[in-house]
Design a protein around this nucleic acid. Sequence first.
DNA 1: GAATTTATCTGACTTAGGTCAGGCAAATGA
DNA 2: TCATTTGCCTGACCTAAGTCAGATAAATTC
Lengths: 291, 291
Amino acid sequence: MTHDPILRFRRFARSVTTEVGALDESFLGRGRSLGAARVLNAIGHGRTDLAELRAYLTLDSGLLSRLLRQLEAEGLVRLSQSPLDARARIAELTETGAGEFAAYEDISNDRASSLLARHPKPEALLAAMDLIASALGQDRIVTEERDPRDDPSVFCLNEYYAELGRRFSTGFDVNLSCDPQATDLIAPRGAFLVAFSDGMPIGCVGVKGNGGPIAEIKRLWIAPSARGLGLAKRLMTQAEERAQTLGIQTLRLDTNSVLPEAIRLYRSTGWTEIDRFNDDPYPDHFFEKTL
Amino acid sequence: MTHDPILRFRRFARSVTTEVGALDESFLGRGRSLGAARVLNAIGHGRTDLAELRAYLTLDSGLLSRLLRQLEAEGLVRLSQSPLDARARIAELTETGAGEFAAYEDISNDRASSLLARHPKPEALLAAMDLIASALGQDRIVTEERDPRDDPSVFCLNEYYAELGRRFSTGFDVNLSCDPQATDLIAPRGAFLVAFSDGMPIGCVGVKGNGGPIAEIKRLWIAPSARGLGLAKRLMTQAEERAQTLGIQTLRLDTNSVLPEAIRLYRSTGWTEIDRFNDDPYPDHFFEKTL
DNA sequence: GAATTTATCTGACTTAGGTCAGGCAAATGA
DNA sequence: TCATTTGCCTGACCTAAGTCAGATAAATTC
């Protein structure tokens, strides 16, 4: 009874609601309504178009308009016409606004770090949070095509290498493997896709092309907290679609038996096993798919 | 940067807020305000005294009064005078009210179980939730004196035995150990304390007395998700205080070196090591403390 | 038994949040 | 070019939520 999964879930929901409520309370301490504070924060986080703000905060256009007017009157926000569309407006923080935004950030950060600081195992706590955030945010996972040298891409790639290092009993040395050139992973030769969940990179995949009709899938990685949610399949489908739009006809990939989940995925999604097509020391399985 | 603990925490907060918001939205679908729904739910969960309701939901007495009147008019709630205090009132669900309450429960449970059902590792997800709920609910942990045969007590004791079974290489057999009689753990001879976090039992400790001035501390257990938060120390302090009010002058306990955290705790809180005082096969360390 | 405290109710009031219809001006498409 | 769509604003309006100052009656204290 006490172990009932649903009771455990609901206990969790209750405790988090209380925590979030307390955060809202402390936001109120700055003498502004929660709505106005949310708008200020969204602008501070780089959401400048009014349409974008409205969509993100799910606000009625009238309501947003009024909240912005309020913030403008306080001297926190500057509104200007969009250079692209004279009907649209753009919101920016003034210097005072940036200061106020920083104050809200401090409140959030203080709560977060004090909770983490007084916990005996902050890393375990964070891992638990990642797991839950990925599970809850399943429907909000978005994929973006990125330069493989971008911050989030590099983060994914490093996690990928670290994972291989753990899986191969002999470790993994990037320099021994055929590390793809960044330009081969960027259109028009190829592409690099990164999956984000609420702004955090949780997976990636690369299409490495050479301008010809044959390209390779490289660097498929899914964050541990997001495994089992079908993200790998989704990323692979998107990579194949992107490859097609780049004019690629055949995709190949190499992999290793220390990655059985990956091999299972390829077998179940139309890939056929082929002979070795490179002399990279790490892989022992090779696949091909005609698009 | 992407690995910044604070960003991870805030991503977590965002995703949970969205989930909780969605739950509230679906509550609204039953044509009642969130406030009224909260009151109905609290009554359904056994909170009958108005004062208790007010404290739990942090509602103004006027507001609660009005929400109750609304629920009463809908025929969901029956209000009656308290038999103990003619000023106080007691709220109960009518049959219709119980049906409505069940509908809200179903909404919550459906969300919970659908999330758990579509996750590849529901047990890991639940463990993560327990960990977070314990961390967030630190300030809301309450200790109650319970009959050791109560549901939550039995849950704790079973978890305790299972834990010992894992720690002892030879396993643990309750029948070989001196399992205390329930009556020795109930006032006036002794006491059994259970710590609850948002209704879930997360720790226990027993004072086993025999009517004389010497008693024993038994069955100190803390749920894995709540370890390191200082709960053991707190439970021990409360057990010692309770022992004192029961007229006990000296406390003893036995323990084993497979439980090093416990031994460290006893050493650091005024217990002195003494000679073996029983012939239980499991313990190898014995402590005493004069109150 | 009088004074005080406690538990709740009532009515007046405020505020945040949100909806809706209509309006204006720029952009778009036939 | 003209009708339509889009992006935003304005003012009127509504509701849930919450606060506050008494009022009432039972319980407690002196």
